[in-house]
Design a protein around this nucleic acid. Structure first.
Lengths: 118, 118
DNA sequence: ATAACACCTGAATACTTGTTCAGATATCAA
DNA sequence: TTGATATCTGAACAAGTATTCAGGTGTTAT
């Protein structure tokens, strides 16, 4: 392993790490849009409710104590970012989490937030 | 291993996974605040610039093509979320990334964004 | 066909957030 | 002390976003 960075003056995290270049405006925009979607408490509550399993819009609305309309609007946003998928069955629409990325993001953020202030 | 959820109808990601309860309003709020900070393209550009190593405010401003004032405002936000740390030396203030969480978040998001639409 | 149900959508309002400008603070050099 | 440099901050404006309300679509039951 090269020690030019890792051994002595590593005052800064990740120098030479996985990013190591200034993001283009376009890439930065895409990142921001994605994380912006996760920048709303009601969407986090909806996402966390879906960790319990698939749910209809009405059930979700009841679970997170929002109107169905508000939930529906937020679900559209989550759909756009492909964080949830849905399935029509009868007159109901069942939503569920699309993949596990949301868990990893949740855990990574939790760790960060729970870190001592050093 | 219990198979009541995992074996047959796993249409939904992560049911019974690491969250598995509706987030409290407070926790959801904290999550949203954190991710909201990452919901701005200029902040991503600043963070990515810092992956190259520590930088002064003026250098950062030049690197990301923003005014020093704008950079300073954004650095305060990043400081508040403990994403960057800083060190005064002489009349300059050197900023750098505080820890590696930002890399993991970046990679996780990249993977999600690069996923095919299935 | 009609009514009830489940969900979605557009438009308007209210709220939040980013950027700019002007000026403040703090450090260094002469 | 004076002037130059480097950064920070508060207030105001502009821009973006969430929520509500009213009404729309599509499905099921009678």
């Amino acid at each position: 392993m090269s020690d030019s960075v890792s051994s002595q003056s590593k005052a800064c995290a990740g120098a030479g790490g996985p990013v190591s270049a200034i993001l283009s405006v376009e890439k930065a925009q895409r990142m921001a849009e994605f994380f912006g979607v996760l920048g709303d408490p009601n969407r986090w509550r909806i996402l966390s409710a879906l960790t319990l399993g698939e749910m209809r819009v009405g059930e979700l609305a009841e679970a997170v104590e929002m109107t169905e309309s508000a939930v529906s609007h937020q679900l559209r946003v989550l759909r756009t970012m492909r964080l949830v998928s849905y399935q029509k069955r009868g007159r109901s629409v069942y939503y569920c989490l699309k993949d596990n990325h949301i868990f990893n993001l949740y855990q990574e953020a939790s760790e960060h937030l729970d870190e001592p202030d050093d």
